[in-house]
């Protein structure tokens, strides 16, 4: 039962991303061509709403269900990892049209060839794990 709430959150996430068309390769392409406001509107209002929700919970000192103050994990310091890793991610995102959330969701819509992208992404993650210590972070 303790996993049920996560299942429900996942289902809602899947529905929202399909209904918003954010899972579409075409929308990603259009975004990088700056030919539509749609994706910018989604990301922008998500961040705006997110800032408000997190600031309110900070001001009101809201506890999470484990009884601790609501908090977001801090990202590690660094520069190279963010700019180089981010750029590599962007190249793959634009080519495949799928980032790690939509990949799974697209399988649910019945497009099984996306499993190839998922398998390759797992391989990419694995290779990063192997050469991690040789990369600038």
């Amino acid at each position: 039962m303790k996993y049920l709430k996560f299942l429900i959150v996942g289902i809602i996430f899947g529905i929202v991303l399909v209904k918003s068309e954010a899972v579409s390769w075409y929308r990603i392409y259009e975004m990088f061509k700056f030919e539509s406001f749609h994706m910018y509107g989604i990301i922008g209002t998500a961040i705006g709403t997110g800032i408000i929700l997190l600031q309110i919970s900070k001001q009101l000192k809201i506890n999470n269900i484990e009884g601790e103050l609501v908090h977001v994990p801090k990202k590690q310091k660094g520069l190279f990892r963010y700019i180089i890793g981010g750029t590599l991610f962007g190249l793959g995102w634009a080519l495949s049209g799928a980032c790690p959330g939509p990949m799974y969701i697209l399988v649910g819509t019945g497009i099984l060839t996306v499993l190839i992208v998922i398998a390759a992404a797992i391989l990419g993650t694995y290779v990063y794990g192997i050469i991690k210590n040789k990369l600038p972070h």
């Binding site: 190249l91 793959g92 495949s96 790690p100 990949m103 398998a119 990419g124 993650t125 290779v127």
Partner: peptide, 8 residues
């Protein structure tokens, strides 16, 4: 594409 997403 998938590899770059996973690695990146």
């Amino acid at each position: 594409g998938g590899f770059l997403v996973g690695f990146g």
